[in-house]
């Protein structure tokens, strides 16, 4: 479904990613794990078109995304749950969700998808009229995921959904991700929380200082001695 090959990207004179290649097949959940500053967020921003690339290819369902602007990428079926949620803090929950179905293709389906997101996250229905910026971190994350789902994406990009949340809430967020998977979505997730994310994905890539180190199935990585030592603290 998604093929990234030889990707290079950066900011100014700084090269954040070089020679990154990965694939995500339809129906799969794939994680990219790695320490802070490895380039995980840059990878997500490049895939969703928010950041230009310097070299390499990103192909989604046969379409090269090279010159496709971000809003078109959403229409093609990639939705991005950005790092730190990035809700519209002064808009209500429902207005935030509405923005997720902004593209002309999604607008006619707004009502039915809103109903669907509310059935998925009943909490959001309770909070529909609340200003998004005043909710707790976990609720905001839920809203951000709901907003991304409003475009009915084929591929969901999730950038550190557990960042900045209390451990109990982190568990809840990972439960949410698990439910999204059960709904049949293809997910590419970026996480620092290696232990928990390996429990819920099929495969993972380890991103180290801008390039892919190890990769394999979740089970392989969990039993890899180097990974266990570096990321799982065992």
């Amino acid at each position: 479904m998604l093929e990234v090959s030889g990707l290079e990207a950066g900011y100014g004179s700084f090269r954040a990613l070089h020679d990154v290649s990965l694939t995500v097949a339809a129906g799969e959940a794939v994680a990219v794990v790695g320490p802070n500053g490895a380039g995980k967020t840059t990878l997500m921003r490049t895939v969703s078109g928010l950041l230009g690339r310097r070299a390499g290819r990103i192909v989604f369902e046969g379409t090269d995304l090279a010159t496709v602007p971000p809003h078109r990428i959403v229409e093609l079926g990639i939705a991005h749950v950005p790092e730190n949620r990035r809700l519209f803090p002064r808009l209500t929950v429902e207005e935030n969700l509405k923005m997720g179905a902004f593209s002309p293709a999604a607008r006619p389906h707004f009502a039915e998808r809103l109903e669907w997101v509310y059935s998925l996250f009943p909490r959001m229905r309770e909070r529909r009229a609340q200003v998004a910026g005043t909710m707790s971190g976990g609720e905001q994350q839920m809203c951000a995921i709901g907003r991304a789902l409003m475009s009915k994406p084929k591929l969901l990009l999730m950038d550190e959904p557990s960042a900045g949340l209390a451990p109990v809430i982190v568990d809840q967020v990972f439960d949410l991700v698990r439910r999204i998977r059960q709904e049949g979505f293809t997910v590419l997730i970026v996480e620092q929380n290696v232990r928990q994310v390996l429990e819920l994905v099929d495969r993972a890539y380890v991103l180290e200082v801008g390039t892919i180190g190890k990769s394999g199935t979740a089970a392989e990585l969990k039993s890899d001695p180097a990974i266990r030592e570096a990321y799982l603290g065992i």
Binding site: A79, F88, L91
Partner: peptide, 20 residues
Amino acid sequence: SAMDAISDDETAAAAVGIDV
């Protein structure tokens, strides 16, 4: 609505599919 979203957070607006 789109302009409200853009003035709140332009990057997030682009990320959810608004042609800023």
